[in-house]
Design a protein around this nucleic acid. Structure first.
Lengths: 235, 235
DNA sequence: CGGCGCATTGAAGTGTTTCAACGCTAGTGG
DNA sequence: CCACTAGCGTTGAAACACTTCAATGCGCCG
């Protein structure tokens, strides 16, 4: 069934969920865990490297241990969309076909846990707790992707506000957010050009909502950002 | 875990998959099925009715037997987004919280199968085949939602072309598609205003790619439509 | 028959993209 | 060691697409 690959890690479950240890927000552990020491392999990848390409047979499912990965798709006409940024604990590489549905790349230097795709089927079939955790993860993931669709009608500034707040939350950061990705990446994630993203940054800076220092962003007025992002979110 | 509600039925699995009978595209039945006669209840709802509202406690998970439903969300500022159109065999009403994450409404007169949400957990926990089918469904659903995100950068005409082809495929229609939803619905699904949708229809009509007769659309040049939709899809 | 909702079309306004230019930084090779 | 190059971020200006507001026509239903 779930043989392997489509990206699940589109978004990490909010706040403190930790799939690999069997914990899940609002759903405390009930035993069981995502893989065992014997099935895990840690691999290192450096920034810019491709982990796998869309269409390749799935040889592994990954979970980020450290660093940032992205999964990307290209339309037939060459437009690029970033499907997800994968942060520590995020899973990617699952699919309901036998090939990867997106390309995965290391944004920064990366520590990855690797799982045998074949294991998933048997865990799913034999371990009820695992199955429920995975399904919860999948449903939550759907919700996050849906949230991204809600952004569709918003302005670039609203989208960027949402993006920054979301990033801060996923990184468990209060006000200091390190952007490891480029403006192009952000644009391809939010459905904007890199120039528009840049202008949105400038605008938020001019309003005093954020200030930037290289790749670090300081959220100076979170409630202001929240108000902006409200326009395109349900929270 | 999956207690009940977020809409899963964002999109029905491509072509002939039939979740309820245990069949799934590319994944033939392996026994087990989605519910049994004893757990099913058929309910009827007429066009325009609300099936449940966002935020309500989930009392049931639904599968469309006949007709069309939609699930909608509203941003904090009142913008409406249609999350999914649910066609026969589509499932909706699942969530990883105990409340519905979207509102479900009947677009046309509707026959629904109702399932006890509590059952899901126990099936998931005890029936490995059910778990794998559900997870496959969820992953496939994620892929479809991702596809909708790919549309983000396309023009209104490209989006509408994709929408019409997708609808035809889901309805197993060759060239004759009955639109049960309004221009507003289509707009809120594709992230466009109803006027822009209307203009896109006019444009496709002018090119001779489609012709319309009331709520019926005839696809006159499918390869032309495909070429247009290519810009914002991966197929 | 009147009223209402939906579809269509026009025109003006707005936001984003595209093309272009420039500064900055980091990495490279002479 | 330093110029050189390449890539990224920023900003400007023009072009483009979509939205918004407005008006009209149509079909349906009470």
């Amino acid at each position: 069934m779930i043989q392997h690959a489509v990206n699940l890690a589109a978004n990490r479950p909010r706040s403190s969920s930790d799939f690999s240890s069997g914990r899940c927000e609002r759903h405390p552990p009930e035993g069981g865990s995502f893989g065992t020491a014997s099935t895990r392999q840690i691999s290192l990848t450096s920034a810019g490297n491709t982990i796998y390409r869309e269409g390749e047979p799935c040889r592994a499912i990954f979970q980020v241990a450290h660093g940032l990965a992205r999964t990307v798709k290209h339309t037939s006409q060459g437009r690029r969309i970033i499907q997800s940024f994968c942060m520590p604990n995020d899973i990617f590489g699952m699919s309901c076909t036998s090939t990867y549905m997106a390309t995965a790349e290391a944004v920064s230097d990366l520590h990855l846990m690797k799982f045998e795709p074949g294991q998933f089927d048997s865990w799913l079939h034999n371990d009820g707790t695992f199955a429920r955790q995975l399904c919860t993860w999948l449903v939550r993931n759907s919700e996050r992707v849906e949230q991204l669709r809600l952004l569709a009608r918003g302005t670039s500034i609203e989208k960027l506000s949402y993006f920054l707040l979301d990033l801060a939350e996923r990184m468990s950061a209060r006000t200091r957010v390190e952007l490891q990705m480029s403006r192009y990446d952000i644009g391809d994630y939010l459905g904007l050009s890199s120039e528009t993203v840049s202008r949105a940054f400038t605008s938020l800076r001019a309003r005093g909502y954020i200030c930037t220092d290289g790749h670090i962003v300081y959220l100076r007025n979170k409630s202001g950002l929240q108000q902006l992002s409200m326009a395109c979110s349900t929270r």
